[in-house]
Design a protein around this nucleic acid. Structure first.
Lengths: 222, 222
DNA sequence: GTTGTTTTTTAGGCGCCCCTAAAACAATAT
DNA sequence: ATATTGTTTTAGGGGCGCCTAAAAAACAAC
């Protein structure tokens, strides 16, 4: 049986591998807020259980078994985020921390009931895809809003960040997944973007803009 | 800060003290399914934190601070049971185990949202009272169904047991809190009861009957 | 290619919470 | 009053998951 800590490591490793091609000790430690030495120890244990592949100094990869488990945890997490947001009105900048604690104590039965109550959603409040029960995750090809040309109109697809302050800020601007935005101007050298959304115009700094992924409008992702 | 284990001890001690006047080491150990020696160690720690009063060989009592915390955990537990039952349709014989895991990771914010979504209930699916946010618990005076006279009609108030099999059995008979039952006959020497409820007649063994507490009909407890 | 810096690993340790086995105590029966 | 029985406590131990400090490996710069 897997401990909560182990489940969490697998989830973190999965999320790192979504962006980087190697999940290194320090990335894992950084993401979890623990010491690198602790990660080394756990990573060995998980490798012994054939959930990850690990060669010293090389970072880790998920095995198929490890990825399966990671996807189950991610499903729990993202379903919970969606449920908390939709059913209980928890603001989107706080669902992450709540789900982090709940995800490890959610039974399969409850998972099914929550999914059913939501109508089997496939994206969470941040626009991240929710893996299906059998571990299939529907990826949409998105691009950063920073790569959008001036004058183009796009739809926010995903804001994949756990920083509550950023989410609160974007929430105040109504920049949720599904929102349509027009890029009015881009300042040179990673400068801020001038956007129009919901009839209002505002600028967005590079740091915030980097977290926002978009799709061309009416491109499927609701 | 309190660990999950400590919270759980306080809850268990509280629940024992609802029925017995001393929470002994073996009662605590029995209720939690752990060794008595483990209880002794923890009980010392909790006594050091002034959450319980403990004298060796004498069992434990909750201090005001300990009772306050215990009531918070009990509130979490019973609110969750109610929510799982009402909002997600979890059968009443399974809400207990789910709530046991969730209760320790429920934030105050979520607690409030769940309570509000339910309209601030004051009984859980088993008829047990839910402490208010400020730790006030509304006790109703109930009596065992075994003490009801033949011919009397009463309302089920509480089925305070965590045994899933018993609850499932009673659920099949529709013997939920709120159900009206008429005692048709009582066999002598702790014999089974013959009951009528919901237009059907059936017998109930002494073991099951002992767990059921009732009130006179229309006596407040909805 | 040697030096300095950063990352990772090893070594040793700690708190938590559980265990078993044996000793101490309490309650009860004789 | 003592012996028996049952309960509780002490003693010692183990796994888990984290830590710090120091050693080792990898990486980068000159």
């Amino acid at each position: 049986m897997l401990s909560h800590a182990m489940e969490n490591y697998l989830k973190v490793i999965y999320e790192i591998l979504e962006q980087e091609d190697r999940a290194t000790t320090s990335l894992i430690a950084g993401s979890m807020g623990i010491a690198a030495a602790s990660v080394t120890a756990m990573v060995k244990k998980l490798a012994g259980m054939r959930l990850i592949r690990y060669a010293p100094y090389q970072g880790v990869q998920l095995t198929p078994a490890g990825e399966k488990t990671a996807l189950e945890v991610v499903r729990h997490h993202r379903l919970l985020e969606t449920y908390l947001s939709e059913a209980l009105g928890v603001p989107w900048d706080r669902v992450h921390e709540e789900a982090d604690r709940l995800e490890h104590v959610l039974s399969e039965d409850l998972e099914d009931r929550i999914a059913a109550a939501l109508g089997d959603p496939n994206v969470d409040p941040h626009g991240s895809p929710i893996p299906s029960r059998d571990g299939i995750i529907r990826r949409t090809s998105t691009r950063r809003v920073t790569s959008v040309g001036v004058g183009e109109t796009v739809t926010v697809a995903e804001v994949a960040d756990r920083d509550s302050r950023l989410l609160q800020f974007l929430g105040d601007l109504r920049l949720f997944p599904g929102t349509t935005v027009e890029v009015l101007a881009v300042d040179p050298y990673q400068g801020p973007l001038l956007l129009r959304a919901g009839g209002r115009e505002f600028t967005l700094g590079a740091a915030a803009a980097e977290k926002i992924r978009v799709v061309s409008p009416s491109s499927g992702k609701e």
